[in-house]
Design a protein around this nucleic acid. Structure first.
Lengths: 215, 215
DNA sequence: CTGCATCCGGGCCGATACTG
DNA sequence: CAGTATCGGCCCGGATGCAG
């Protein structure tokens, strides 16, 4: 992208990561760690290979992305700092997540951001729990331990709870916006007890004031 | 911009504000409040008028921007929430601000972000102070009162301190990266006592670890 | 003067084919 | 698997025109 040529930090940041796809490439590396070209491509449905190549080269030049011994792409320490702007954008876009359009693609690891907001922070009183979430594609694991809730891609070894269903309904259930019966009507099936999960929840993500809802 | 069509909060946010210029339009409205078309144009050097029109329409449709009684553009409550992602981006891009290129345009109100980081937070022990900063174009005012430092566009009525000079040197001085003599060599002139200003400073913006410096 | 609409050249994007 | 090459089309940039 052509530079804005402004002596402004926002403009300079956008000069580096403002191109189409760039921030989504960073999102992939942020959530999943180092990735190969083909893995990135899978997490960016519809991206053209030449664009992925060009963006990666550009991000490498800028010092945002590097390559490990195995030739896989990974964020540099400076690139990791993009977590803040990206998660801030994700939180801002949260009201747009109430329903999933049929034409929209989905990868289960994209649930990392919602999970980070809903179960964020530390709380010593929070019960330990391992939940496996199956929202399509590869399952993901949500683990509560030592008062912290963490996200992991991949299935859980010994889950206390397994939740399966469409992603929008699962987000509604996790966020507390939908009850178990309401979620069940939307196709969510639960194996195990949901009550401990409700005690993990911190934020009212997606349940903010009406006035913030777009349109 | 064409939609990413992903069920992901980041992608959906970028569907709305990921176009070229969009976030900079929001930056203008965030810093300066409601603005007219021509005022926006002045704060976005190089934007084509048709693009400004198109972006404003798009942001209006999305519920990010509205118009007041006088027909001026202003952020909606939801649009105001973009402050977080935009300021996060600004902070991330901070290491790129050490020097100003000659080809880069500058508007003094863009100093709002640096000032917010350098003098952020509340601190009851902070002295009261009014400083006028002349970095080119319209002066801006930095006011410390009740432990908070605030930014205002426009000159100060009764400043305790007036700082004039090129923007990059002024940022270096404000951030504490440059001493008064070093800043003077770069063309900064100071009227009044700088010592109280140094006591306002909170963050080590732009003085972070070397490893974060790109390239 | 402000706020836009139109037009056009060029560059960026998207899709597919192709190669080591 | 990891890109490179190519090409049509859309978006961007800059200039111009115009109505209130």
């Amino acid at each position: 992208m052509r530079s804005y040529a402004e002596y402004c930090s926002v403009a300079k940041a956008l000069d580096l990561v403002g191109d189409r796809w760039s921030l989504l490439i960073v999102r992939e590396l942020l959530i999943l760690g180092s990735r190969r070209f083909g893995e990135l491509q899978d997490g960016l449905p519809g991206i053209a290979t030449n664009l992925l190549t060009e963006r990666l080269r550009h991000l490498e030049e800028a010092g945002v992305v590097g390559r490990d011994e195995a030739g896989r792409y990974a964020l540099t320490p400076w690139g990791e700092l993009l977590a803040e702007p990206i998660y801030a954008l994700a939180r801002w876009g949260a009201p747009l997540m109430v329903t999933k359009g049929d034409d929209e693609s989905f990868r289960s690891h994209w649930l990392a951001a919602p999970i980070a907001f809903i179960f964020g922070g530390q709380d010593p009183g929070r019960p330990a729990l391992i939940a496996e979430i199956r929202a399509g594609g590869e399952p993901i694991t949500l683990k509560s331990a030592d008062g912290m809730v963490t996200f992991q891609p991949g299935p859980a070894a010994a889950p206390d709870l397994v939740i399966s269903g469409p992603p929008d309904a699962i987000i509604g259930l996790l966020a507390g916006r939908l009850g178990e019966t309401a979620a069940a009507e939307l196709g969510v099936s639960v194996l195990g007890d949901l009550a401990p999960l409700a005690r993990l929840r911190q934020a009212d993500w997606l349940t903010g004031p009406e006035s913030y809802t777009p349109r």
